Simulated scan of single mutants.
Amino acid sequence: MGKQKIILVVDDEQKILEVVRAYLEKEDYKVITALDGESALNIFKNETVHLLVLDLMLPKISGIELCNKIRARSTVPIIMLTAKSEEEDKIEGISIGADDYLTKPFSVRELVVRVGALIRRSYRNTEPLADVLVFNGGDLKVDIKKIQVIKNGNILNMTTYEFKILKALLTSPGQVLSREELVERAFGMDYDGVDRTIDTYIKNLRQKIEDNPKEPRYIITIYRMGYKFVG
Rank of each mutant, 00 (worst) to 15 (best):
I6D: 07
L169F: 08
E86I: 00
L169Q: 06
G93F: 02
G231H: 10
R206D: 04
R224V: 00
R114E: 04
L102H: 06
A22R: 14
H50C: 07
N68D: 09
L66Y: 09
T160Y: 09
A117H: 09
Y201A: 04
A117G: 12
E65T: 13
S122M: 00
Y161G: 06
K60G: 01
D100Q: 12
V108H: 13
K208V: 07
E215N: 15
R217H: 13
K60Q: 12
L133D: 10
K15Y: 10
D11V: 02
A72H: 13
V20C: 05
R185G: 08
G63P: 02
S122I: 00
R206F: 03
I70W: 06
A34L: 09
V132D: 03
V31R: 11
M57D: 08
Y23D: 04
Q175T: 03
G137Q: 07
I78A: 09
E18G: 06
T197G: 02
E181K: 13
Y161R: 14
L156M: 15
D11K: 03
S39D: 15
S107G: 08
S39C: 08
T160E: 13
Y101C: 01
R114L: 01
S95G: 01
L24H: 14
L8I: 05
E18Y: 09
D195W: 02
Y218R: 12
T75A: 13
A168H: 03
D211R: 10
E87H: 08
V49A: 14
V112W: 11
S62T: 13
R21T: 15
D190T: 03
L102E: 07
G231V: 03
E88F: 00
K208Q: 12
G97H: 04
D199H: 06
K167E: 15
S107I: 01
D199E: 14
V9P: 02
L8C: 07
T126M: 14
A72G: 10
K90F: 01
M1V: 04
L166P: 05
N46W: 00
K208P: 05
L51H: 07
E18L: 10
R121N: 08
D12N: 15
P216Q: 12
L102N: 08
I64D: 13
L66E: 09
R21C: 11
I222V: 15
L54N: 09
Q14N: 06
E184D: 06
T159Q: 12
K84W: 01
C67M: 06
Q14R: 10
I209F: 11
K45D: 12
D100T: 03
V76Y: 05
